[in-house]
Amino acid sequence: MIRIGAFLVGLFFSGWLLVSATMGAFNFVTNPAAPTAEHEFHKKPEPVDFSFNGPAGKYDRAQLQRGLQIFKEVCSACHSLKYVSFRDFKDLGYSDGQIKTIAQTWPAEAPSINPETGEAATRKPTPADKIPAPYPNEVAARAANNNAAPPDLSLMAKARHGGPDYIHALLTGYQAPPAELKKKFPEAMPGKTTHYNPYFANLNLAMPAPLTTDGQVTYGEGAPKPTVDQMAKDVSAFLMWTAEPKLENRKRAGTAAVIFLLVFFGLCVGAYKNVWADKKAHA
């Protein structure tokens, strides 16, 4: 009884799936899906040789500091970094005093309450504060940016396929739309408020190129030349740090754990052979 029922159910599901597949295949041949602009023009980010790549990779403190400088001078005008606190900059190699200065000179101020009137106010951030956002709320962010709210960047390096490579590719990938795009997909051309970038998922994004000219940011002594590519690398590395601040702890702990477990594995194999010696003398 069970087998007859199963046979019928199986026949129904499998049969109907094959019917659907045939119909789908027929449709696929007679009415193939139109190629899309994304499919033909979207590019995958090229890998960047970051210092933190690989199982033993570490952050380059100087690079992170340069990245912070770019974030502060360029990105922070529109983007928030709401999961990062000023105190976290200790990881970048800053002292308590320097962090206090960074907090007090930050372009945006922390929200606060006027103690006399109770009205919303702002105050100078302290090291314990999260990085203040440039806009008080999402509506303000939309209103100031053609209805495209700039996303928070704290986790951006983990929130996109390709991570920091993607950020670097996006920042350096702005270009004029290729003539072929205009010919084949006129509707995929950038509009008045969007900008062509083949690394962006749907090719046109609301953010204009933020890093446009070499030397846009002035680096301190001993730093590499602030080319657009270098600045993009630095800020990508910085955003990787904001997304994964414990990366170095993680890799260090992981190396210790793997070494420990390899020894443990060896001992377990030894103990196993020892215990089974009399049962498997022949094996």
């Binding site: 199986g10 599901f13 799936l17 094959l18 659907s20 789908g24 696929f28």
Partner: peptide
């Protein structure tokens, strides 16, 4: 479309395997 087509054939085998 292609992925759906492949999953249809594979699903058909899955049910057929166990039930038939």
């Amino acid at each position: 479309d292609g992925i759906v087509l492949i999953s249809q054939i594979a699903s058909a085998y899955y049910f057929a395997h166990f039930l038939i």
